[in-house]
Write a protein that binds this DNA or RNA. Structure first.
Lengths: 240, 240
DNA sequence: CTAACGTCAATTGGATACAATCCCCTTGCC
DNA sequence: GGCAAGGGGATTGTATCCAATTGACGTTAG
């Protein structure tokens, strides 16, 4: 277990956020940043003792993560970090394209005043970590899309986009060789420009291309650094 | 508490479905069918004792329902059946339109062989309960859309549509005067026909109109049969 | 009579204890 | 040597128990 997870959760316990929320977010970040790799087991008491909380809390957090599609639980077997199949990955990207098309439609229609400032600030922060393609750049790339969704003012939409983006991050972590967000940042800027021009078609097309490129890169070469990951994936096919 | 909820949950307890699942689904149906009205409190031990299970189970079920947006929980106050505001209702319908547009796109592209048979069978069952517009017709109307989504083969999409449709059912229960699914059944048939013709544009337009009509009906007149519901809604506005 | 304060009951937040289930490994048999 | 059945260990599923927070009521002072 990576030492990064050994942080204690209780310093600001009653800061309006419940313990479950804290564990939930920590686990989520750990999964997205690949501290917890796909297929890895998540025993309730192990996790709980790492965070200094009881199984009850971990359980609740795992339920949420399962609803988000980031972990799967098998009856009396426990929770595992999800290993999306290529088919599921395709499905996730299909939904994502639909949702983000709606985001663009809405933003062209009603982008808030400070929207472009926030977006450009975000792009700048993306550029600042452009070189070192680590977990941070993955997270920032995702947060750009989440920010877009939030700017629509539609919290329901923002929530779904957020979920989907996280799942995509997990998928990219599994399948993409290198995240190479070099072009992504440029594409983000172009999308902003298209929205500013009120050109829904171009913006949507750019977004489709953006996501399509990402998905395409992913499908081309399953990441093969982890033997257990590969084996368990084969094992899953066998079991079905 | 309605006696319909007094069913025991444990007859086929270990039938591959956990107690939490059972309670979750039962509560969900109770909410959708308006046995549990918006704003109603859901004390853990009361519910648990009604179903003959412990608070722990109810708790897990409530967590899931909260994730689905059907209940809201306030810190140390407990769980309540959600009372979506008009704004939130609008957001939900926006997302729904986007998702269902994608469903149609995909179905025109790849409707499975037995798809039309299933759809027509469903429409027939909708027509059979056309007169008595009760909870059943609400449920069936929703299940039509869920069936559409499932026929895409995209389980991720189907899941989101399912969630959204359930939320819409709750919204309709709150705001719509009468569900009057008279035209809805016709519209369902027309949508099927448009998909069969491969006419994406017409099918999408029909669907938009279908949902738009539903949303429009909803927004025109908030349901005013329950004083407590109205008051609590006003109270919520006050609290913000 | 009103408003603020203190106490109390009710309910959830969380932890621990017990039971059921499943996987895996061993062992015996073919 | 391989396969099947049984047992042990580990992990989840569920229930009960204690603590913390909140809302409400009653009391009291102004």
């Amino acid at each position: 277990m990576p030492s990064a997870l050994k942080t204690d959760v209780t310093p600001t316990m009653s800061d309006k956020t419940t313990l479950t929320d804290a564990v939930h977010q920590l686990l989520r970040r750990a999964i997205i940043e690949q501290a917890l790799k796909p297929g890895m087991r998540l025993p309730e008491d192990t996790v709980g003792e790492q965070f200094g909380v009881s199984r009850t809390i971990v359980r609740h957090a795992l339920v949420r993560l399962e609803n988000e599609g980031l972990v799967v639980t098998r009856r009396n077997r426990g929770a595992f970090v999800a290993e999306p199949s290529l088919e599921e990955a395709k499905h996730v990207f299909e939904v994502r394209r639909a949702l983000e098309a709606e985001v663009i439609r809405l933003l062209v229609e009603r982008m808030p005043r400070s929207g472009y400032d926030q977006l450009e600030a975000h792009v700048r922060s993306e550029e600042s970590v452009k070189g070192k393609d680590g977990p941070v750049s993955i997270r920032l790339a995702g947060e750009f899309h989440i920010l877009l969704a939030e700017l629509t003012g539609n919290h329901v939409l923002a929530r779904y986009v957020s979920e989907i983006v996280l799942r995509c991050s997990l998928i990219m972590a599994m399948y993409a060789k290198s995240h190479s967000s070099d072009c992504a940042v440029d594409e983000h800027s172009q999308i902003i420009a298209a929205i500013r021009d009120g050109d829904t078609r171009r913006a949507t097309s750019l977004m489709d291309h953006h996501l399509g490129a990402v998905a395409g890169r992913a499908e081309l070469e399953p990441k093969q650094d982890s033997v257990s990951s590969i084996l368990s994936r084969y094992g899953k096919e066998l079991a079905s």
